[in-house]
Structure formats: C-alpha cells, structure tokens
Amino acid sequence: MPKFDEKPRVFLEEFRVKNAPEDYGLDDETWDFKKFVKKFKIVVVRMDNFEMEFDLIGIQPAFANAFRRLMLSEVPSMAIEKVMIKNNTSIIQDEVLAHRLGLIPLKADPRLFEYKSEEDTEGTEFNTLEFSLKVKCTNSKSQPKDSYRAEDLYENHSIYSSHMKWHPIGNQATVYKEADVGPVHKDILISKMRPGHEIDLQMIAVKGIGKDHAKFSPVATATYRLLPEVTLTREVCDSEATLLQSCFSPGVIGIDSKNRAYVKDARYDACSRNVYRYDTIKDSAILSRVRDHFIFNVESVGAIPPQIIFVEAVKILRDKCRSFLDELNKFS
C-alpha cells in the first residue's frame, strides 16, 4: 500500500465505492473557517459563453451539492409561460405547441426582471416579455417541375425559433437591444406545416425557477465529479503496460521509454474500473477519488453565461442563509 497524503479519498474497489479506513466522512469534521480559507481554492479550467469547467477544492460535498442543486433549480431564467393561440390550423395540437414553445431558451437577463405574481393579470415591462409568432404556409411561387422536396414546393413549411418576433412593452425598446432579446438559437424547429396551415399566436415570457418547471432552469445541466486518482502499486511493463493503458481513458496512463507504465494525468479518467477485469493487472493499480476536490461542469442554456449562473447560485445560498439566520434571531 503506497502512502497517501492527507487528502480525503474514496476508493473505487471492484464491487463498491469505499471510504478510506479512518475516514468518517467530511460532515464529521468541525467547521473551522480559518482552515477552510486556507484550504479552499477555485480553479477555472475552461470557460466560454455556454460551458464552464472549474474545480472547487477543499470544500464539503454539502456545499458543492448545494451549488449544483441551486443552479439546476433555483437560479431563475426567462421562459415562455403563456401562449395565446389565435389561430392554429397546423397538425400540431395547441397544448403540444405551447409546450414546445415553452422549452425554447430565451436570451434575456433574468436579473433585470421581477417575478410576476399570480395575481397580476397584465404583465408589465418589468416582469414580462412579449413575443408573437405568425406564420402561414403557402405553395411556393416557383413550382419546380422536377423536385418533390418540401423546401422547393412550399413556403414556410417549417417554423423555426427565428420566426418568433419580440414585441417590446413600455420602454423595453429603449432598454434592450433587439439582439439581446429572443431565442438563443435561431434554428430550433417548432413545427412543420403544409399549404393552408397557419399559426398565429402570442407568447408571454416570465421569470421563473427550475423547481417549478424544467424550462426555467438556466442550465442544460450543472454537475460535478470528484477528482480521480490512479496509483500504481507495482511496476507494470510491456504488454501489461499497454493493457493497463487500454483500461483507462486516453492520456491517463503513459508508457515511458523503458516500456513501463506510469500515471500521466488521472484528471480526465472516466473511472470505468475496467482494470479489474484482468486478473494479471488487477493488483497493479489503486483507483481512488479525492473527496473534497469537485470538478464542476456547468452547461448554460445560453441566456446567461455559466460563471454568472454559479455566482447567482452562491448569492441565493447566501440569501437563504441570511433569511435563516434572521428567522433564528427572531427567537433569541
């Protein structure tokens, strides 16, 4: 057994995930702010407008999980909530059409809007966005003789999210630019039509949270995994080395010039535990994961960049804690 440093670990055994023998879980530790500050680290690994990978090191799983949960379900975003259908002669049913429209991710910063309460019948410029969709399918004017493709024969035979039109209310037109509001992706297919079909409807988007409906979730997914670690217990060389290499994700195990296997970088190992399939090399590697090293992966739906989503989640947790403390203080 090689010597491990103090990092708390879980070991990936052949049939189960097992904590280190003297590890009783991070929740058992007493909270020490100084210690936390010393240990805690955030490393952003990769980031763009839609996706972000970052590490949260030295934190309890409860916190990491709380952030994950909040990003999924409590960070608000805007989505179409009400659809007023004036005319729908296409084959898609009104309810299904409305459901599909609701799931379209919208470009709009939810921080600039308020929640619309149940009692409000009329939306205001502060809590709603209005869109309309009016498409009519017709026979194409230039009827090519030799083509049977729908795109040649008909006009507007597919409705895409780009057909949605934003109608500013109040002074929304001055506050937001046309480009800032609307569907994130222009090419989401909403429905298909044939000549004679017509869709004419109005949509109202409001702010909401993922707990209420998945369409309000600002992320496609927000998840984390623990940092994998691979430790070799003995020298593995030649054919065994290549076999060992094949048991891990590419780039995890390297083979040096003497045909010996060494651990290159275990970070992106998929933890498939396929080493255990081969009796010859079963004993050569110990698979483990660092319990307080969370590799977060946040995929934004596109309305707000992922880093802001995370910060919002942190803010929500802070506010929740504050209100909890306030409640507690009422009794003391």
Binding site: V10, L12, F15, R16, V17, K18, G25, P61, A62, A64, N65, A66, R68, R69, Y224, R225, L226, S249, A270, C271, S272, R273, N274, R277, R289, R291
Partner: peptide, 26 residues
Amino acid sequence: LEKHGYNYHGKDIFYSGLTGEPLEAY
C-alpha cells in the same frame, strides 16, 4: 462500452442528489 470509457459491466459511479456524495454501490 469499454471502448467509450464506460465500465464493461454497464455500472457507473453515481452521486446522491441529496447529499452530494458518491453512492457506495455502482
């Protein structure tokens, strides 16, 4: 499955959505 970095037997590591810690079983 193995080729794509998944476990040969189809069993994956899951984390509990409630506690955030990895589940003991695959």
